[in-house]
Design a protein around this nucleic acid. Structure first.
Lengths: 352, 352
DNA sequence: TTGAAAGCGCTAACAA
DNA sequence: TTGTTAGCGCTTTCAA
């Protein structure tokens, strides 16, 4: 890197002390004449304050970290765009990491951010509450997006945010121990899933399956609640996050339960897998099987028939999360739940 | 951020000087006994060297910047995943920016990186060679990915990399002035487009259109070369990068030239638009119009018929670019061109 | 092999 | 309103 002008250069050229330059540039008090002179010189020298110096002095790096499971998943692309939009308008840098939905990789990435002294983080978490507690305790200001860390124990979720959201989602409330001081920005999974299930019920469907992926605990819970006890457990299956695994899960589901007439896919990768598996098995959508997919992605409309989806505002989720993590907010920040919308297209039909 | 152990703490606890700690931790010389002691203490204190201090001292930030046009475009998601994979294995952070294919936003983002003293950058460029020359001159080590900056003047492309690649792509060679010292990692657009056009020709198509987007100069050029002079200029149309604009371009194309029988979409967003526009206009694919799309994305298979595509290795492009920018390489680094592959599925048929 | 010391560019006390 | 100064945590001469 070529030598760039430093604050000292500006100070000398303007005939003032470095502190004055610093003050002027950060909007502190200074006489109009000094201010003007300093500004002129700075512009003339094309001076740009070094974030390095400032950060070291303030013992913290500006900007924020962003951890998502997979950027080839369009939903996370949308979420990331939201975060970037907010960060840009705030002039803050964003450090990106992709976790592959693997708690270990996630931990590595968090370690890297710690090393960089990044103390603000937006995360779509893979690890459970137990793994996140220490990092929040260590002073990292984290906002969860899209989902919250799973509770490690049924009897001790140990997470305020998780707790509240689980309650929102109709899960059993649990005693609040060790509250996890992190807000979360999520979609209203409960309402979204409930609406979808009711819609399918209205079409006459009785055997409705749920095809889930990692971190979709609240959607699964919402599904169970929506179909009501007793839940046919064979109709609730999971992939591990990769497209292959999602396909395997979908294919296995269709083959083991040819009696099912509708499936709710918990995310767009799972929806994709369902479409592919159905085609492979010569199941027609929606004639043989109806499909509702979580996430509205551009290609949902390209399928034939176009997919009926539960839309969640990925971009807004990211934007709001970035706002939250940026706002040097007061204590006990609360999370936000954004609405979902059932968009009816052509992938659901009456039960045959 | 809670107080973390510093190098000084480690030095004191180990009864050595800070320089020794620094040496030990960076693999310098030290007696076995000292080394062991320092290491033990460091581990015990959970010491992690602060990137802040190191960076200031070395007047540069580690890691790299990554600038892409749009993360909701799956191709760039793939590319980003490649970059992240390489960065992770090198333990380097990645600063992400999304330019929206807007040279101004791009310039802002570059400015931000400069301020952060990030001196390595992987960019899918929006601005032309003229805007990039100064940043490279300023010492930023940039590697272009997916495409190279457009040449500002026909008679003075002013860019070695651009120049070479344009030549590869069959454009007129130009005198090499002001060489732009930046390597590029791109797909073999020329071969990809040529193969697609030949394939369509083989199917009997005569009136083949090209639907392009920003930064696709080399693909357009390849298309012109492949169809051969005289090129029917009305059959070469462009969107500006947004989905809406792509749709408008596709729709306009189909309506103004009902005689066309095949279209090559220069990217997946354009392909998406073509499918949508065709459906809206009641054009059947491939009966009424054949379609080949650049980019193999997961949803290409979900369309019916599944889309015939020119696959380019997005992830590899990102990975290789990251390797290049990381390797403190010798002078005059050359770019790399990765192969494309025509994947025939169902969106092309014989001309009616 | 080791330690002392000098900064990297900046901000924030503190003085003037 | 200003300038001087002391570091932030680290690496790197330079001596010992």
């Amino acid at each position: 890197m070529e030598r760039r002008a430093t604050i000292k250069d500006v100070a000398e050229a303007a005939g003032v002390g470095v502190a004055t330059v610093s003050r002027v540039l950060s909007g502190g008090s200074a006489s109009p004449s000094t201010r003007e002179r300093v500004l002129a010189v700075a512009a003339q020298l094309d001076y740009r304050p070094s974030a390095l110096g400032r950060n070291l002095r303030q013992r913290r790096t500006g900007g924020m970290g962003l951890l998502v499971p997979d950027l080839t998943d369009t939903f996370y692309g949308q979420l990331a765009e939201g975060v970037l939009a907010c960060a840009r308008s705030a002039g803050e840098p964003v450090l990106l990491g992709s976790t592959g939905d693997d708690p270990e990789q996630e931990a590595d990435l968090v370690g890297m951010l710690l090393e960089q002294s990044v103390d603000r983080l937006i995360a779509v978490p893979s690890g459970d509450a137990e793994t996140w507690t220490p990092v929040i305790r260590a002073g990292m200001r984290v906002v969860f997006a899209d989902r919250v860390p799973a509770a490690p124990f049924q009897e001790d979720p140990g997470v305020t945010a998780v707790n509240d959201l689980m309650r929102l989602d109709g899960l059993s409330p649990a005693p609040q121990t060790r509250p996890l001081d992190a807000p979360a920005v999520v979609a209203d999974d409960r309402a979204g899933i409930r609406t979808a299930v009711r819609y399918l019920r209205g079409l006459g469907h009785k055997r409705i399956a749920f095809l889930g992926g990692p971190g979709q605990d609240s959607r699964v819970a919402a599904f169970r609640a929506a179909v009501g006890a007793p839940v046919d457990e064979d109709l609730v299956v999971f992939g591990t996050g990769s497209r292959d695994s999602a396909y395997a899960a979908a294919s296995g589901l269709f083959q083991s339960r040819p009696d099912l007439s509708a499936v709710v896919a918990g995310g767009n990768v799972l929806g994709e897998a369902a479409v592919l598996a159905a085609r492979e098995l010569d199941l027609r959508v929606p004639r043989d099987v109806s499909l509702v997919m979580y996430d509205d992605v551009p290609w949902a409309e390209l399928c034939s028939p176009p997919l009926t989806v539960i839309a969640q505002p990925g971009r807004d989720i990211g934007y709001r999360a970035a706002e939250l993590v940026l706002r040097a907010e007061t204590r006990k920040p609360r999370g936000v739940v954004l609405p979902t919308e059932l968009i009816v297209r052509g992938s659901c039909g009456p039960r045959r």
